[in-house]
Simulated assay, not measured.
Amino acid sequence: MSLINSTVKPFKVNAYRQGKFIEVTDEDLKGRWSVLVFYPGDFTFVCPTELEDLANHYDEFQALGVEVYGVSTDSHFAHKAWHETSSAVGKVQYPLLADMTHQLSRDFEVLIEEDGQALRGTFVIDPEGRIRTVEVHDTGIGRDAVELLRKIRAAQYITAHPGEVCPAKWEEGAETLTPSLDLVGKI
Rank of each mutant, 00 (worst) to 15 (best):
E147G: 11
E113W: 01
E135P: 01
R130N: 12
H79T: 02
A98G: 15
A78G: 00
D144M: 11
D107Y: 07
D74P: 04
G129V: 12
S86D: 10
D74N: 05
V92A: 02
D144K: 10
S72W: 00
A88K: 14
R153I: 01
R153E: 01
R120E: 03
S72Y: 06
V124P: 06
T73Q: 10
K91P: 13
F77Y: 05
I152T: 00
F77K: 06
L149C: 12
S87Q: 11
D74V: 03
S87F: 12
S105E: 10
A145Y: 04
G129A: 14
V92G: 07
V68G: 01
Q117D: 08
S75K: 02
R120K: 06
R130V: 03
T122Y: 10
K151C: 14
T133L: 12
S86P: 12
E114G: 14
L97A: 10
V124L: 04
Y94T: 12
V66L: 06
I125L: 00
P127K: 00
D74Y: 02
Y94P: 15
L148P: 07
T101F: 10
A98F: 14
R150W: 04
R132L: 08
E147D: 14
L97Y: 11
D138H: 02
V66N: 02
T73D: 09
A118H: 14
I112Q: 12
V136W: 02
T101C: 11
Q93A: 04
P127W: 04
I125H: 01
A78L: 02
G121C: 04
G90H: 05
D144I: 10
D115V: 09
H76L: 07
R130T: 03
L97N: 09
E147P: 11
T139R: 13
R106C: 12
I112R: 07
R120H: 05
Q93L: 04
A78M: 05
T122M: 11
V110E: 07
A81S: 08
K151W: 13
L119W: 11
T139L: 15
F123E: 01
G90K: 03
E84C: 01
R150D: 03
R106H: 08
S86Y: 12
R143W: 09
S105R: 05
I141D: 04
T122A: 11
W82G: 07
D138M: 06
R143T: 09
T101Q: 09
G121A: 07
E147L: 08
R153W: 09
Y94C: 15
I141W: 07
K80G: 02
Y69R: 00
S105N: 08
F108I: 03
D99P: 03
L148T: 07
D99I: 07
K80S: 06
R150A: 08
L149F: 09
V71P: 01
E67N: 10
M100K: 10
K151S: 15
S75H: 01
V134L: 02
H76W: 09
H102P: 13
L149D: 05
R143P: 13
G70K: 10
V66C: 05
G116Y: 00
L111K: 06
I125P: 08
V110T: 08
H102C: 15
D126G: 14
V66H: 03
F123S: 01
D144S: 15
T122K: 06
D74K: 00
I152D: 05
K151H: 14
V146W: 12
G121T: 04
D107N: 13
A98P: 13
W82T: 02
V68A: 01
K151N: 14
S75N: 01
Q93M: 03
